[in-house]
Amino acid sequence: MPTVSMTVNGKPVSGEVEARTLLVQFLRDQLRLTGTHVGCDTSQCGACVVHIDGESAKSCTMLALQADGAAVTTIEGLADGETLHPMQEAFRNNHGLQCGFCTPGMVMSAIDLVKKNPKASETEIREWLEGNICRCTGYHNIVKSIQEAAGNMGG
């Protein structure tokens, strides 16, 4: 089987995978990083969003081998010890999650937005979240969380 090597949350990792192994399967099943979720498995819901070399991507629609050599960041790589990332903290402060299933993807997607558009308007935030579905329909507080985090991230 092919071997894949990448950096995940700052640590070099490698493993043997089938060519058809998805990145999200490698992260969850082999690295046991189960914070990245599989919701729809059809690139629509965004629960599986991670960062590949700083860009948000759906890890259910990427082969593990496509991430060979890349720097991958998952939800587990955001907090600094006990200190949450400002986006995580803002989701906590604003009740930005209900069941929590979509939250890892929401947080990873939102960080990419704030990096690219630190002063995103409410409309721009809602448009950006097109690829992230919250089946609790808790979008209002998710948007509030992202607005607060953008301020705290220096936007």
Binding site: S43, A57, E130
Partner: peptide, 9 residues
């Protein structure tokens, strides 16, 4: 096209 993550790839 698609959503931001689809546009990234």
């Amino acid at each position: 096209i698609g959503d931001p993550q689809v546009r990234n790839r």
